[in-house]
């Protein structure tokens, strides 16, 4: 009897160790396997299709002033070292203009005053960071759809790319969305936050708000909007700084 118990214990122990060992060594190898990563990344397409089926054109939830975060955390780059940007910032962005180009009929250079003169949308929304935290703030600016309508899209245009003034090391920040999100009513170019001009820490002079996706899609320090047919051939080709740098999902609805 004692012999049987012992062998049983040994067997179970070996089984547990074996499983644990497989998992410990296997997860590392699997995580580096290109085929396995491709399979995992297949879920991103499922997320986009499922969410667009469920949400359609629905708006992200909007909140009352009383529900706003007392303090809105600034994240990512909180300042820009670029000399031209610094000059514009010191001058209150009075001489600055947003460039809209690429696959458009009429390339634009829109000064901040022109963006402020367009019909405005103000929205109190929840900003969800990929890390897990959330902050609720009030954003105001023209809808991106209005700016795109002024420029007039060429039929080949599929993506709006946001080129930013901030950098991580030598790599400029950029982000991109497709035209479904670009023409969503809550997608605005915010120059005002919580009733004040957008602070530098939050992306002055202009920050993209794309409310149904995670925080890293909301590009700060937007200098130029480029309309493109494809994301291939631009930096790492995955459509955004974090997408290129670490395999973060391009569709960040989850």
């Amino acid at each position: 009897m004692s012999g049987r118990v012992l062998s049983r214990r040994r067997l179970l122990g070996a089984g547990a160790l074996g499983t644990g060992g497989l998992l410990l060594s296997g997860r590392h190898r699997l995580n580096r396997s290109a085929a396995f990563r491709d399979a995992l990344q297949g879920a991103e397409g499922l997320h986009m299709r499922a969410q667009r089926l469920i949400a359609g054109d629905a708006l992200a939830r909007e909140y009352a002033e009383a529900q706003m975060s007392p303090e809105f955390r600034a994240n990512g780059n909180r300042d820009v070292a670029d000399a031209t940007y610094r000059q514009h910032a010191d001058a209150g962005f009075a001489q600055w203009a947003l460039v809209v180009d690429g696959l458009v009929r009429r390339p634009l250079a829109l000064p901040l005053s022109a963006l402020k003169a367009l019909p405005q949308r103000a929205q109190i929304t929840r900003h969800d960071c990929v890390e897990g935290w959330s902050a609720i703030g009030k954003w105001q600016g023209p809808q991106l759809s209005r700016v795109l309508a002024m420029a007039g899209l060429l039929p080949a245009a599929r993506y709006a790319v946001f080129h930013c003034a901030d950098r991580f090391g030598d790599t400029p920040y950029y982000e991109s969305i497709d035209l479904i999100d670009a023409f969503h009513p809550q997608t605005i170019l915010a120059w005002r936050m919580n009733g004040q001009p957008l602070p530098v820490a939050h992306g002055a002079p202009l920050r993209l708000r794309v409310e149904r996706q995670l925080g890293y899609k909301h590009a700060k320090y937007v200098m130029r909007i480029e309309l493109r047919a494809t994301l291939a051939g631009l930096y790492g080709g995955k459509g955004g700084y974090w997408e290129d740098a670490g395999d973060y999902a391009w569709y960040a609805g989850i």
Binding site: Q51, I54, A55, G56, A58, L59, R61, R126, E211, G253
Partner: peptide, 11 residues
């Protein structure tokens, strides 16, 4: 419930 995309569809 943590997904901003789902939140738009099913608040």
């Amino acid at each position: 419930a943590m997904s901003p995309g789902m939140d738009a569809g099913w608040p």
